[in-house]
Computed example of a mutant assay.
Amino acid sequence: MSTAARGTRVLVLNSGSSSVKYQLIDMADEQRLASGVVERIGEPGGAADHTEALRTVAVELGGRGLGLDSPELAAVGHRVVHGGTRFTAPTLITDEVLAGIEELVPLAPLHNPANVTGIRVARELRPDLPQVAVFDTAFHATLPEAAARYAIDTATADRYGIRRYGFHGTSHAYVSRATAALLGRDPADVNVIVLHLGNGASASAVRGGVCVDTSMGLTPLEGLVMGTRSGDLDPAVVFHLQRVGGMGTDEIDRLLNKRSGLLGLCGDNDMREIGRRMAEGDKAAQLAFDVYVHRLRRYVGAFTAVLGRVDAIAFTAGVGENSAAVRGAALFGLDSLGVTMDPVRNAVRGHAARLVSADSSRVAVAVVPTDEELEIARDTYALAAAPQGG
């Protein structure tokens, strides 16, 4: 009997280092039946570990009549941050696959261990259910070598797995397809620049549904200015901080990942607060905003050149969906690239996908709310429900 015949519900789990987020989605109509988060894992007042956290999830779902023992539960989908070059598509989890994800921990030391723990506990709770890993890096596995390779010694790069992997892949995949749908076109016929702007931020160039370039690299540190991450940086800055500043590797890591970006520039990593400070004439906040927008414009220009023809630019995630100021400033004056914003449309807030470009704009500009959990659920259900060869 296929998984689809047993049930139509998918539990999506996102196991972080100190939290477990979950959503239960009925794939018959893609309705969310439940969602929540267990936070402060391993901290006073929180769950002792991921086992207890997932048991808490099971109890919460059970209290709503949606327990993990339900015959309607078809599969569990897990967000996994790094798939390396080995896992380039949603993958049914086996012991061998789990071991492979563990082997990739050096590429994502802050994320993959928690992802692995979540998978292990979920398999213990429901060993009979198909469990699927959906990788943040998978959508970017189609990058051509010219985009994926760093210009360093090839033997060294291959030995240590140094290349551009990209992240936020489930969001970029979902938004690029949703943008094509908004335009009433087949994704295979549409070229889209996706700007995922949250506390973490990344851009992608998607040609006909296939990612051909992205801003993040070996790690999520490369690319756009983010809430607390620097984004693109001359690598010699690291050597300078070591030699002149006497800083160690871990200290520099914390600086670039936790104390840089908007936070490093003005002391705030919330674009709403930065906007409020700008309105009061705060020069540091204005500079942070200007640096953030300048980097965005550079990537829009670069990815326009990569794609050759751009049909749409899509903004998504917290800042992308909610900051009209960022959208307006990022694309201001780009009429020569075929981009003309409609300031009235751009100022209107909403929860649905919508166009904010002028009718005369050759390139459509869209605001498309992302839905990474639904993307994971779709991938999970499609794989778990498919007949498995033997």
Rank of each mutant, 00 (worst) to 15 (best):
S202C: 00
Q286R: 13
T316V: 04
V348E: 14
G42W: 00
D234E: 08
T8C: 13
H82Y: 04
G308A: 09
A188W: 14
D379T: 10
G208Q: 13
F135R: 01
S204A: 06
T56P: 02
V20W: 02
I193N: 06
T88E: 10
L11G: 08
M27G: 07
L24D: 05
L256M: 01
A146C: 08
V306E: 12
G264H: 05
Y381F: 15
L13N: 05
G231I: 00
D69E: 15
V134H: 02
A141M: 08
G248R: 14
G217L: 01
V363P: 03
A358E: 09
R120P: 11
S357I: 07
N346P: 09
R123N: 10
I162W: 08
T380W: 03
T8Y: 12
G338P: 01
V190A: 11
A133S: 03
D232V: 02
L98I: 02
Q31P: 00
E321Q: 05
L197V: 02
L107P: 07
R298V: 03
A133M: 05
I152H: 13
A236C: 15
M341S: 09
N269P: 00
A148W: 03
V365F: 13
A28S: 14
M341V: 07
Y299W: 06
E273G: 10
A47R: 04
G118Y: 05
D29N: 15
E273A: 13
G36D: 09
E251K: 12
Q31V: 13
V10K: 06
L355A: 14
S19L: 07
T154F: 12
S215V: 01
V210E: 14
M226F: 03
G100N: 11
S35A: 15
A147F: 00
R177N: 12
T370S: 12
M278R: 15
D186A: 10
S2R: 14
A147P: 02
H50V: 07
P71N: 12
L183V: 08
N115M: 03
R177Y: 10
V12A: 08
V293Q: 06
V237I: 12
S357M: 09
P369W: 11
S18I: 02
A5D: 14
G333Y: 00
V344T: 15
C211A: 14
Q31T: 14
S70G: 11
R55A: 09
M271P: 05
L265G: 00
V76W: 06
L13C: 09
Y174H: 15
Q131M: 01
T170C: 07
G7I: 07
D234F: 04
G301L: 02
T214F: 02
